[in-house]
Design a protein around this nucleic acid. Sequence first.
DNA 1: CTGAAAGCGCTTACAG
DNA 2: CTGAAAGCGCTTACAG
Lengths: 345, 345
Amino acid sequence: MSKKNITTLKQIAEELNLSISTVSRALNDHPDISLKTKEKVISVSKKFNYAPNLFAKGFRSHKTNIIGVIVPNIAHYFTSTLLKGVISEAEIHGYKIIISESRNNVQKEAEMLETMKQFGVDGILLSLVRKTHNVDSILKVLEHIPLVLFDKVSTKVPCTQVVIDDEDAAFRAVEHLINTGKKRIAIIKETEKSFNSEKRFAGYLRALKNYNLEIDENLILSTEDISMHQGKRLTSILLSLQNRPDGVFAVTDGAAIGVIKTLKKHKIKIPEEIGVVGFSNSENSIIIEPKLTTIDQPGHRIGEVAFRALINEINNNDNTVNNKTIVIKTNIIVRESSFKSLVTT
Amino acid sequence: MSKKNITTLKQIAEELNLSISTVSRALNDHPDISLKTKEKVISVSKKFNYAPNLFAKGFRSHKTNIIGVIVPNIAHYFTSTLLKGVISEAEIHGYKIIISESRNNVQKEAEMLETMKQFGVDGILLSLVRKTHNVDSILKVLEHIPLVLFDKVSTKVPCTQVVIDDEDAAFRAVEHLINTGKKRIAIIKETEKSFNSEKRFAGYLRALKNYNLEIDENLILSTEDISMHQGKRLTSILLSLQNRPDGVFAVTDGAAIGVIKTLKKHKIKIPEEIGVVGFSNSENSIIIEPKLTTIDQPGHRIGEVAFRALINEINNNDNTVNNKTIVIKTNIIVRESSFKSLVTT
DNA sequence: CTGAAAGCGCTTACAG
DNA sequence: CTGAAAGCGCTTACAG
């Protein structure tokens, strides 16, 4: 059951009484080789069902055509769309990808980086574990292998980064609530130093300031592990306030859905009494009723762009440290949770 | 920016005035090598930050420690859980995985199989594209590389297969509706020869027969691309019947959620007037209100088991054709869409 | 137009 | 206990 009967160049060469070199050149369409020889070689290689051993090829040429991708959690809809973008672009460029999951564990992330290096991947696409404080292991890898950060990034790592416009997107989300007449807008965010959550919070603050709305600390709620459950819990807190909010911006769809569920349980009218906006445009956002207004993050696009940026680095052999940040635009998707008169299908 | 400054065995050997062979053996903890030498070698290799080139290693030993995984669609929650199972098990056994997406395209699937072979992967885990009629390319790969089919399988391929008990799970789903007093149970299934859908349909039929319920063709609805949208459309058809159903079993959660949405729109009481059961226990099933009764498919488990089965084949060097089917048990998760008096949190 | 030879980084019989 | 040598399958200067 092991790898037997696999045709090699040698066998083709023997069959045709040619040298291995010639067969190799013929198969690679080298200009030196005569048409007749090429035809013979190709015909026999087809007959023998020849397929080059990419491992040997990669080993010889120091080019594996493999890209390593490390993400915190693969079972996440948005992550899947990122990966889809990476995969489809990789296919176009003739690369294969190895996917690893760091499971939100800094230690695991470092180990995986090391393994990728050992495999001799041509480059690495990395989405950071939250709270990656010590980036030493990343910097070390960066000395040897082209690396691009995407989605979850850090300014501590001097390399190309592909991100969405979190701050701006959050600004527009809150601005939208303000435009629907809301004046006391709460935010549900993460406590830990999640890059994305912090930027979204900044966008929230900027929107309030921009429209001269009061910033009420009672309306700023944080949670460790943001989720539907936490959305529910924090909404109960908001509802217990003397001066309730009339809008809620949650930095994830999951939390926003928790908000909606709790508001419905309390018979609070959405969006008339309280409008709700989430972030991600996950599948769930159209399952919940009312459907959730949210920010669409083009995951596929981010994956594609990150891959292309990486390919650029790989082909760009000088030791220039590329340190630019590519920002991908997002869109706000307005639905029933924030805008009443919308007709839905 | 290319792979420079990467330590090799040769450098360590030169530094210590030893041969490459000895260094290799020392690093692999070969019994022949003296403790003193081992210590010296390990110390220098640490100093030089040595990491073996796995490509060279794999090339040399005909063992790449890479497993190829091909799935129809990566952006699918259930698929993510399958992959998680595969990845976590792979990690335990020191394997890396290459993931490819066949995008429900038979042609692509065949190409990917070929590429995997060229890469010299040690084995392949394959979830079939629906309607894969021509399995020739799979059979060809099977001659050279151990292969295990999982989730979406076909009896046409003589190899180990890991699946869930679709027929039995569907039987229990329908039986559950019958136990809640339903007598006219509709099914929403796929038209195309999806292995899973067909088996679920068989379970539906068996349950009706087993409980002496009439099989009414008007209650058997099929759709090409099963989805929430199709669930909605087919529910409208069911509601237009003179003799309406009192229960609906949809072979996917997406379709079941479409059913619920349409029933709610028509103010039909769930589950009193019509009970609904889905299949998959997707995230969405607890977002929709009422929450959906569904079948939990242990994706992680399936991935794990499939990986272990593959490892067995790899280590089992005889040319025995392994042809057993491993069936993973599912559970029915009863929620509000089918069982009224349930208290929910 | 074609071939002999070196070499990519490693492992492993074989010899001492 | 250690080393010299062959070889995994391929590519590519170098030579003719």
